[in-house]
Amino acid sequence: MLSATDLVVRLGSVTAVDGVTLSVERGEMVALVGPNGAGKTTLVKALAGLVRPASGTIAVEGRLAYVPEGRHLFYDLSVEDNLSLGAWRGRDRNPKRIYEVLPGLAGLARRRAGTLSGGQQQMVAVGRALMADPEILMVDELSLGLAPIVVSDLADHLASLHQRHGLALLLIEQNARLAFDLCSRAYVLENGHIVASGSSAELERSEQVRRAYLGVGSTPSKVRSREGDSSESARRDGSA
């Protein structure tokens, strides 16, 4: 549904993404984790068509929407206007259908986006992306600057959208715990390279991944309630 093959993205003289190959299948929830400066946001911008890759291919089947890091709302406009502008290329600009899947937004419709809390803004950002009626949603740093309870609520909404509407998700996260809990499969990006990939459960068991992203001594999550493990084996071999 969404795939990148040998993708290279350069920002000036810096190679931010170097030979990345990844894929998200229809109805799948996939995470991309990695530290600051790993190239996650550059990669997702390239997948969204906002940055031109130097080489490699990107294939997208179906509608794709993107929630950028830091929300990037239209802060001078109302929540309703923010949502309707999400359907800029679409025909149905009525945000009522979003209020059905994200009921918390209905009461905020007339509020200026700039006056909302961080969690509410993130909800609007997700709702705005959903206005494009996407089959795949890319969310960059869902948890950034938000309280854990707010993040948990947002994660539940995404899981519900996935289960009820078959929405595919590519979650770009620094919070590996959240990413592994929410997604069945994950990639680890470091210095522009995919250094590990596999099912979330397998990655959680990987000593190196646990040490780098979950903290030494972390135990695999017991709250996993999403899809089962994939058959793909976790690997940390420097190639995608």
């Binding site: 969204a48 906002l50 950028p68 990037h72 709302l73 239209f74 001078d76 309707s84 800029w88 494009a132």
Partner: peptide
């Protein structure tokens, strides 16, 4: 108007405008 709001969106946040396809 939707067009006017689209222009206001560009004024408010050019990157976000590009993200939604404006």
């Amino acid at each position: 108007t939707y067009l006017g709001k689209g222009m206001t969106a560009c004024a408010s946040n050019r990157f976000a405008a590009e993200v939604v396809g404006i």
